[in-house]
């Protein structure tokens, strides 16, 4: 019965989601957005560490900012659990892989400039106070557009998705035609 009511509520908001989807690029909750931003920062630095042989810088970052990274990871995981229930883990894994892929693709476009151009981010992250890591991540253009709090409506890995409606419950879904 609860599931039925929830389903009706989701359908009821579906039209509104469709109308507002084009304007949405951030999570409904600022704390969710911050957590996604920090996760994207960790992913970006991980890609850089592998592609540009910056493992030592990456390890320093992880050690120094461990508390904030763990906290943000917990928030992102909680969002996936709230949104996908039992399918949360594979959805989360898919999201992490897609994010790294997108960030790696950016490197392709920059060619040989990629590593020297991106390397300063490690030095920048190193002077940011740990509690302000999310504010730093928010200005580094790390999340490909509409990846934060995006709800996958298709099969896992199908790439079909819709951004979460800003004002509504983040589990609102919209079936794409």
């Amino acid at each position: 019965m609860i599931a039925l009511k929830a389903g009706r509520a989701l359908v009821a908001t579906a039209v509104l989601v469709g109308m507002t989807a084009a304007a949405q690029a951030r999570c409904a909750s600022p704390s969710d957005q911050e957590a996604f931003d920090v996760g994207a920062l960790k992913s970006e630095l991980s890609v850089l560490a592998v592609a540009c042989s910056n493992e030592e810088d990456y390890n320093h970052f992880v050690e120094r900012d461990r508390s904030e990274l763990v906290r943000s990871d917990g928030v992102v995981n909680a969002w996936f659990k709230k949104t996908y229930g039992r399918a949360a883990q594979p959805r989360y894994d898919s999201y992490i892989t897609l994010l790294a892929n997108e960030q790696g693709l950016k490197g392709q476009h920059e060619g040989s400039d990629f590593c020297p151009r991106q390397k300063p981010i490690f030095a920048e992250a190193a002077i940011v106070p740990v509690p302000q890591l999310a504010q730093f991540a928010a200005v580094k253009d790390l999340l490909p557009k509409d990846m934060a709090c995006v709800i996958e409506t298709g099969a896992e890995g199908s790439g079909r998705s819709t951004p979460a409606r800003r004002e509504s419950h983040p589990t609102a879904t919209h079936k794409k035609k």
Binding site: S46, V47, A51, I96, A100, G104, G107, Q108, G111, S112
Partner: peptide
């Protein structure tokens, strides 16, 4: 692991692009 695997896939691509 998944993240590093994805990143590793791009290493040869980055080299070629360079």
């Amino acid at each position: 692991h998944a993240r590093h695997t994805a990143a590793l896939l791009f290493l040869p691509l980055l080299s070629l692009t360079a």
